Lab assay of single mutants.
Amino acid sequence: EDYYQILGVPRNASQKEIKKAYYQLAKKYHPDTNKDDPKAKEKFSQLAEAYEVLSDEVKRKQYDA
């Protein structure tokens, strides 16, 4: 799945936009606030993985290549 789609940001998003999108979605899908939703944990880990790659310039360049 596309990391940009997961975070809901365009491919040319700035680091600030990526961070903002991640924090909004992380708050929304955090397992502690969605105890009754088994998919929230999965969504949250996808968000974390996408953010880890896109927030790191080197990893992001490799991902975009």
Score class of each variant (00 low, 15 high):
Y3A: 03
V53T: 14
K35M: 14
Q46G: 05
I6S: 04
F44N: 04
K59E: 03
K41Y: 14
Y29C: 06
P38F: 07
A48F: 14
S55R: 07
A50R: 00
K19A: 15
R60A: 01
E49L: 11
G8C: 06
K20V: 14
D32V: 07
P38R: 07
D56A: 02
N12W: 08
Q5S: 12
S14G: 06
L47S: 03
P31H: 08
S14W: 03
Y29M: 09
K59I: 03
K61E: 11
Q24T: 13
L7S: 00
K19C: 09
Y51G: 02
T33H: 12
Q15E: 08
V9K: 01
E42Q: 12
A26F: 14
A21P: 01
D56V: 03
K28A: 10
E57A: 08
A48G: 09
I6H: 03
L54W: 01
R60L: 01
Q5K: 14
E42H: 11
A48Y: 13
K35D: 11
G8L: 04
S45K: 13
A21E: 03
L7M: 08
S45W: 15
D36L: 10
S55G: 15
K27P: 09
Q15W: 05
Q24G: 08
Y23D: 15
G8V: 03
E49M: 11
E17W: 07
V53E: 02
A40F: 09
E52W: 09
N12Q: 09
K27Q: 14
V9T: 03
Q46P: 03
P31Y: 07
K28Q: 14
T33I: 12
A40L: 11
L7Q: 00
D64S: 02
L54N: 00
A13Y: 01
R11P: 07
Q5T: 13
E42P: 04
R11S: 05
V9R: 01
N34V: 10
R60G: 01
E57R: 05
E57N: 06
A13V: 04
R11V: 07
K28R: 12
I18P: 00
D32R: 08
Y29Q: 05
Q24I: 15
D56R: 01
H30S: 10
R60T: 01
Q46W: 09
D36T: 13
E49Q: 10
K28Y: 08
S55N: 07
A65Y: 08
K16H: 15
I18K: 00
E57Y: 07
S55M: 06
T33Y: 15
F44L: 10
A21Y: 03
N12T: 13
K19M: 15
R60S: 01
D32S: 12
V53P: 00
D32E: 11
E17F: 06
Y3I: 03
D37Q: 06
Y51P: 00
Q15K: 12
